[in-house]
Design a protein around this nucleic acid. Structure first.
Lengths: 210, 210, 210, 210
DNA sequence: AATGAATGAGGATTCATTCAT
DNA sequence: AATGAATGAATCCTCATTCAT
């Protein structure tokens, strides 16, 4: 709504414009989902006319997909998994959980939008959804790797189950936090989650040895 | 062009029409979310003209809220929590988890739509979202009650944490199932969830006694 | 542009509205072709909002197709072919040519639009084009029938050739008239056309007898 | 993202670019008419960015007009009218008709576009239309000259009528061919056309002598 | 209880064109 | 000679909603 900041900008700068558009889009799409994100709203928020958005992105689908891609990259670098950490496996799982929790607090738009897309079931699936599921799978595999490293006695079925459970818990806790706001101490509750997973891993390992 | 072709419209029946509209709406809204649900689409799916939908419901907001309400009721009666079951607390938690898992498999539209609404963050919140959060809270309290009954030694903070964790896990596992389809054995994974909650409850009880 | 004629019309009247829309569309589409016909222009000319046009017609394609259909019907009834006429075959061909010429002078929008559509070669053909080619074929068959009746000695190949030539001449002369306006006496030149076709028919008949 | 990937753009060559643009435009405009031809489509087909098209042509109108001009020239040189041919006037008319028929088979885009333009009736006439009508008139005069040469007894009114009829037939037969494709033997049917014109000329000559 | 028709606002996207480089 | 980026107007069409019947 403030117009004063744009005193007839002329120097065309594609890269910056693209970023501005993406910035505006994460915000809006993270709040209102795919259908709730209108190009007009993005245009208003980023200051570029709607038609300019179409110079940078083929269509809305392409735009949302690009948002997911970029957000995932930023998020990934924000998670900074210190896999080399010394300590017991419980320590390491706990640190990891805290890291993930913190990263989610910083980039909630990404996951919120992603989950909304993931929940939808349209006949023609938005590309953004596909992309989200792909990058989500990348994260999932990282977690699986960590599980394998920390609990080498586990067989693949157990690893898969634990990973599923770990991811599901993360999603669920994130949602809880989105609903209840600061009532939920995300870091604390993620650490409980880590603890339980650790217990489960140990029990499974014991069982498989027997 | 001839008028006589009307196929002997069965005597208008308000109740049935209302149901047809609601049926159409759960399906569409469960697949595409709030913004993705157009009155025209609902009209097409239920066979009644758009204007008829407005005879039964004040506006789109009202319609979606009604859908949530009805779906919740159906779901509640489907869960059939056998609180009176004899057996160890682990047994009882496990049975309960299986019941919930099964009920979610039957009414996925309800939870899918609800979660989509819950994740959104619009300036003027749809009434459907409010309703969903309310009914969700009802479920939450039932779970809290069960936890209190099964693990009477727990203090209120612990009960709250466990309940949060239980609900979060349920949401997360549901999402996982929505994404991966039959790859996820929802009942099995819910039972693991129950197990871990049971362990956590016992550890917490032990700690609070100390 | 004159607004005064519409003092808040309320009495909904589907049939009349439909006609108004079609009337506006023939005119515009007859002048500017498919792409040149904007829904906004039609809306402006008929006084109904653009969205109302979509109540009556599925989309632009459907609208144009409907225009062709209706125009063809009006044109057909305007041609009034007096097949029963007594007289020499030349007389009868000449009368027929004059009739067609006159009907074309009255409904030039129809043929102009149709020919524009016929000339186009888009990857996905507008339904209006299909419809035009169909109704055109109906006319063609009527002409073929007349030729068969008037010159019974002709074999089918000859009938086909003559019909093709007759239709082609009609199209070409119509175009000439569209370009040159009143410089071309359409009735006169159509009668010349009839004459030449008559000669050709006789020559062909003579040849086939030999 | 690296700039070095540009594939060694061959030294800019204005003339060639201009040709490429014109080539793309005939094709598109010949298929879809004036309004149906978008600069973006031309740009996509010729590989040059839209802004480059505006370096070579003032605006869309100018581009279409240029296309008509160039196409007419190519067509003219393709017709190769052998006016000096010996033989009866019927022979010569027939040869000429065959030549024209063949030339139309080779450059259908030109005439298709031209006829579409000619049929349109917009308030502000595209320059391409004007140009087409002009070049068409040049052809018309050549035909009139030929008629005058071959049938010197005809008065000017007769020459004009015959020319009109000749051109109209050509247009109509071309259209027929565009619609029906290979069902129409354009050369054969043009020869019938020539024959009939020849007959008409003779009859007119006889009449004017009487 | 229901519906045909209408409507203004807004949806995504494309348009022809310009301008600085 | 060419182009990346931008832009306002216009495109087709859908939206939620209303209203007279």
């Amino acid at each position: 709504m403030t117009r004063s900041e744009a005193p007839r900008r002329k120097r065309a700068n594609g890269v910056e414009s693209r970023q501005r558009i993406l910035d505006a889009t994460v915000e809006i799409a993270g709040e209102r989902g795919y259908d709730g994100t209108s190009i007009a709203a993005v245009s208003a928020k980023c200051g570029l006319p709607a038609s300019s958005i179409y110079w940078h992105f083929k269509d809305k689908d392409d735009l949302i997909a690009a948002v997911i891609e970029r957000s995932f990259e930023t998020w990934l670098t924000a998670v900074e998994l210190p896999d080399e950490t010394e300590g017991t496996s419980l320590d390491r799982v706990t640190v990891m959980a805290a890291n993930i929790a913190r990263s989610l607090l910083d980039a909630p738009d990404f996951l919120r939008l992603g989950l909304m897309l993931a929940l939808e079931r349209r006949p023609t699936e938005p590309r953004g959804r596909t992309v989200f599921l792909q990058v989500r799978d990348i994260s999932r595999q990282r977690i699986a790797d960590t599980v394998r490293t920390l609990y080498p006695e586990l067989d693949e079925a157990a690893v898969r189950t634990l990973t599923t459970y770990a991811v599901a818990g993360a999603d669920g806790l994130f949602i809880q936090r989105e609903i209840s706001g600061d009532d939920v101490d995300l870091v604390a509750v993620f650490q409980l989650h880590a603890q339980l997973i650790h217990d489960a891993a140990n029990r499974m390992a014991a069982r498989s040895e027997a």
